[in-house]
Design a protein around this nucleic acid. Structure first.
Lengths: 227, 227
DNA sequence: GGATGTGAACGACTTCACAGCG
DNA sequence: CGCTGTGAAGTCGTTCACATCC
């Protein structure tokens, strides 16, 4: 009765068995490889990559093995091929039209960070329930009434959504997004959100991260220390 | 040579063996319990908590057992006691003076989110290298020249820092924070940061999360689908 | 020699299942 | 009974170690 979905929030069966942790590292490999290439490096070893990212060489090889046999024994991996393989595997060898719901400071920060666009994410529309914001333009994008979500999402073929609304609005916004046909949601609202199968969810809970940090610092005190 | 620190980034030995995953869930338990109490609930079972958070009841009990034997068989857990125990274990039964380095939109978003203060984090100073920002006030807090970091951190007894600077400035900012005596860093810069033992680090990489989402959606397509 | 790919060992986390208590 | 706490089993992810190949 209280057993949660065995397949966490969503996500179907791809080909290989790929852990969530490996996928997160894929993004890091990709970014570092792109930097290596900018610096003129053409070939890179598992040791070098691991060194740069704080991972063991074995870990790097295990991860990269999921991409097929790109490595050359005695040499290393060809950086450009690795980059292409990573982008393909991550699904970012194309453009993802993305919308943002909730136009606050966090949304503005995300819109201005050009790193997303660089990796294939393109913000195409904003939504906010505040009448004062509807119709305005933020960073060149129009702010729509959430009532028009289904229509706008379909028109712009948006598949991903970033949710930066307050916690108490998160579930209803999520439901609306699902109804509008969105396939994946990046949620920043500090709450647990439910959604049906077939829609993917990644949550970033900033309060949780800050509390984690407090715990780490607290656990790290050498001896009995003053409170 | 490439073996990363066995004890990840930092973090010493506390009393019990507590997994990082459990600690993250502690934050979620805490928030939900606070909501329960606001709604008048005084006693809560592992099944109820698990239901609310999408976890198994066994998982909840295992986690909560780390707090001591607070549960009463046949009854459940007393919510107020659980809350107090969680806050204590997380190290947030006190105030953490916190600084922010890099005054952009992300910083502003964090400053305005009142959930942090509610849990014991108090922003006490801002830093930014932009001369146009130094001396200004943002959300009632002064923006200081990073050169004054050691002095200001000591004066205000700040222990935690949130870093929201561009990737290429992250390492030097981190080094300066460590030199200034900061004990924990929440890093938003999209890069891997190195720091000495005795300082804790939590990184939130938004690009990684968005790419993770793309991967999930991509892996979740039913059959061969149009690109 | 130098670096990959991978089975096997290891370790960490989760779920199961049940004894025990209110 | 209902619900907790917990050993045991199971699952997942990482590290080791080495055969293999350029």
């Amino acid at each position: 009765m209280s057993k949660p979905d065995p397949a966490r929030s969503a996500g179907g069966a791809s080909d290989s068995r790929l852990s969530r942790a490996s996928v997160q590292r894929f993004s890091l490999y990709l970014r570092h490889l792109q930097r290596f290439v900018r610096e003129g490096v053409q070939t890179v070893s598992s040791g070098q990559l691991g060194e740069a990212l704080g991972l063991t060489d074995a870990q790097v090889r295990k991860d990269l093995a999921y991409l097929g046999n790109l490595g050359q024994p005695g040499i290393g991996y060809p950086a450009p091929e690795l980059i292409a393989a990573l982008r393909h595997r991550l699904g970012i060898d194309r453009t993802w039209p993305t919308i943002v719901v909730g136009v606050g400071n966090l949304a503005r920060a995300l819109l201005r960070y050009r790193g997303f666009e660089q990796q294939g994410f393109l913000f195409v529309a904003l939504f906010d329930a505040d009448p004062g914001k509807i119709g305005q333009k933020v960073d060149g994008l129009e702010v729509y009434d959430p009532k028009r979500m289904a229509e706008v999402v379909a028109d712009l073929k948006a598949e991903l959504a970033v949710v930066t609304v307050p916690a108490d609005a998160a579930q209803s916004v999520t439901d609306a997004l699902v109804a509008a046909g969105i396939r994946g949601i990046l949620n920043f609202a500090p709450t647990v959100v439910r959604l049906p199968e077939g829609v993917s969810l990644v949550s970033v809970d900033l309060a949780v991260q800050l509390e984690q940090l407090a715990f780490l610092v607290e656990s790290d005190r050498p001896e009995g220390e003053p409170e």
